[in-house]
């Protein structure tokens, strides 16, 4: 009896090893861990790290596919060209505009949706959580077409339905100028992605302690006060994660712009600019430079979020 107990203890002590010498068992576990997780890790690096390095390399050349003979190493000249071109800055401006507007509206709208879903009647809740998934799951291109055809003169109903609104008439061309085009692009983006943000916020809401709410209620706090003083501070982590993901996602917007305007009326966004340089104009060097710059923008945004807003993904995931 006592013998088995002792051997059991030594076994456990070996398990805990790692403070001092690593036991064979811990070493075997490490090896197994990497054997299991390694393939996924390597594949992730292969499909992203390799292309971005390749893009950086190609961005150092003046290189057009239609004229391979003229390929020439030009150092950072492509970056000078891109950064010196108003087209790039306009694309950045449009992208930032779309990102800021969509994310802010989505945050408010998504929060409202989450509050309704959180508190909705028992009979309604499953229905709401099901329908809200439909915009999330639908193909972005399909959603872009739906919104495009709804507003487009030749096929839409929006002009006919809203002709009583000042400025809208039967022949309002929504895709004829910048302001209206961007409005429709933003609307379709908001429709499609708000459900995602609202589901993240809903999960955050579920983590707000119910007794805190009750205590605030007893103390006579109004609904708004409870929202500001209790609910929001307690789900700050969820809000920040939702914001970070959506900001980065919105900054990469491409599908809606491609379907609705193809960048017409100055609605070109950064992703579309990179696409146009590479795929349409076959300017591999310039396109790569735009791609690398876009990548750097995304890194910068993540960095700002993590530093300025102190988004701690680990704590948000409950790892603390």
């Amino acid at each position: 009896m006592s013998v088995t107990e002792t051997s059991g203890d030594t076994g456990r002590a070996a398990d805990d090893g790692g403070k001092g010498a690593i036991s064979d068992r811990a070493r075997a576990e490490r090896r197994l861990g990497w054997w299991l997780a390694g393939p996924a890790f390597v594949v992730m690096l292969l499909v992203t790290a390799y292309p971005i390095l390749q893009a950086f390399y190609e961005s150092l050349f003046r290189y057009r596919l239609t004229d391979p003979g003229a390929r020439e190493f030009t150092w950072l000249n492509n970056y000078v060209v891109v950064l010196g071109d108003p087209i790039w800055w306009r694309a950045v401006g449009v992208t930032v505009l779309i990102t800021v507007v969509t994310v802010l509206i989505e945050l408010v709208l998504g929060f409202a949706l989450a509050l309704v879903m959180h508190r909705a009647l028992k009979s309604l809740r499953p229905i709401l959580r099901t329908v809200i998934l439909i915009p999330y799951a639908i193909i972005t291109v399909v959603s872009a077409f739906a919104w495009f055809y709804a507003f487009n003169i030749g096929s839409g109903f929006v002009n006919a339905w809203f002709d009583w609104v000042p400025g809208i008439s039967a022949d309002t061309n929504w895709f004829g100028e910048f302001g209206t085009s961007v409005t429709v692009i933003i609307a379709s983006e908001i429709w499609k992605t708000t459900p995602f943000i609202s589901l993240l916020l809903l999960a955050g809401l579920a983590q707000v302690p119910e007794d805190l709410q009750e205590a605030a209620k007893v103390d006579g706090a109004t609904w708004w006060q409870r929202l500001y003083k209790v609910t929001v501070p307690n789900m700050k982590a969820a809000i920040m994660v939702a914001l970070l993901f959506r900001t980065l996602d919105a900054f990469r917007i491409f599908d809606n712009v491609f379907i609705m305007t193809q960048g017409a009326n100055n609605t070109e966004v950064v992703s579309f600019l990179a696409y146009r340089q590479t795929i349409s104009r076959l300017e591999i060097g310039l396109g790569s430079a735009v791609s690398v710059l876009l990548f750097l923008c995304v890194v910068l945004i993540s960095f700002l979020f993590i530093k300025l807003f102190k988004v701690d993904l680990a704590s948000a995931r409950g790892e603390r």
Partner: peptide, 27 residues
């Protein structure tokens, strides 16, 4: 399992998830 690099793998997954697709397309 307990092995070093867990965090690295999760962080890499996160970094890949926010990677701009168009930056992969070009090369």
């Amino acid at each position: 399992l307990d092995f070093p690099g867990k965090r690295l793998i999760l962080t890499t997954a996160l970094a890949v998830a926010i990677f701009p697709v168009i930056s992969i397309v070009t090369p």
